[in-house]
Structures are given as C-alpha cells and as structure tokens.
C-alpha cells in the first residue's frame, strides 16, 4: 500500500542516492521500506575518525510527522548515546521538524559525534570523562572505533 510515509521514504532514498552526503549512507531493508540500515563514518579530526558505525532507523506510518526511532547497533561511547544505542538528540525528539529527511538525520547524528553535549548526558561516564579526562575519553572511544570494524 502506498501511504504518505512510504512515498516520502522512497523520495528520501532517491535523494540519498542522487545526492549522497559525505560520510553517511543508508538504505531500506530488503523487504521493508519502514526499517533502514545506515552507516555513519566517524568524522575526521575527532576520536571517532575511521570508525564505521552501524545504525537502524525504524519509521512509523506517521513519518515524516513523527521522527524515526534511530539506534546505534555498533557499541558506542559518547555522552549522548545510551547503552542500548538510543540517541539523545533534540531533533529526534522535541525539535523534530517534518522538513528533516533521512539525509538530515544522519548528518545531524554525525555532527553529534563531533560535538557532544555533556550537559544532557545519556551516558554519564562518557560525559564525565569528556569534561574531566579527555585522554581517557578518547581511549574509550578509540576502542569502539576498533570494535566497529569487526561488526558484521
């Protein structure tokens, strides 16, 4: 059935292929346009550099009026990412605008990796280390980067 959400997701996918943003990629699953797999490459000049972090995006029929549920599958160490991979990012919650598309979501998450917000922590250990012990923070992040290469 062609619904507003599905039509829009096809449009998002087409745009992602025709005009791919740097450092992110994403595509619907084989049998279900409502569930996408995505990869975010760790931004240069950050401890996440060289990481290939995998995510899932689950869309509801209310997309784009409601944001998708986006989760990291790769293990992450970041002040705004929960242990279960959930992401604490305002545009995925109270600042969601229907004008955001998949491309905008992925690039926003990519910039969250570069610029954590330690004042609104989802991982208090990561937030504390980010503020007080940057070396240890970077060490823990690097471990996630190396682990990201081994994920399926």
């Amino acid at each position: 059935m062609s619904t507003a959400a599905r039509r829009r997701l096809m449009r998002d996918f087409k745009r992602l292929q025709e005009d791919p943003p740097a450092g992110v990629s994403g595509a619907p699953g084989e049998n279900n346009i409502m569930v996408w797999n995505a990869v975010i490459f760790g931004p240069h000049d950050t401890p996440f550099e060289d990481g290939t972090f995998k995510l899932t995006m689950e869309f509801s029929e209310e997309y784009p009026n409601k944001p998708p549920v986006v989760k990291f599958l790769s293990k992450m160490f970041h002040p705004n990412i929960y242990a279960d991979g959930g992401i604490c990012l305002d545009i995925l919650q109270n600042r969601w605008s229907p004008t955001y598309d998949v491309s905008a979501i992925l690039t926003s998450i990519q910039s969250l990796l570069s610029d954590p917000n330690p004042n609104s922590p989802a991982n208090s250990m990561a937030a504390q280390l980010f503020k007080e012990n940057r070396r240890e923070y970077e060490k823990r992040v690097k471990a996630c980067v190396e682990q990201s290469w081994c994920d399926d």
């Binding site: 689950e58 929960y82 279960d84 604490c88 208090s124």
Partner: peptide, 16 residues
C-alpha cells in the same frame, strides 16, 4: 515505535 519492551527504569536508562 520500537517493538522492544522498554528497559526497566533505573538511572542511566533511556528515559526519553
């Protein structure tokens, strides 16, 4: 919404 059941409420869980 995710079909997984939400984790038990404890500090550090995904309150959002």
């Amino acid at each position: 919404m995710s079909s997984e059941s939400p984790p038990p409420a404890a500090s550090g869980d995904n309150q959002d």
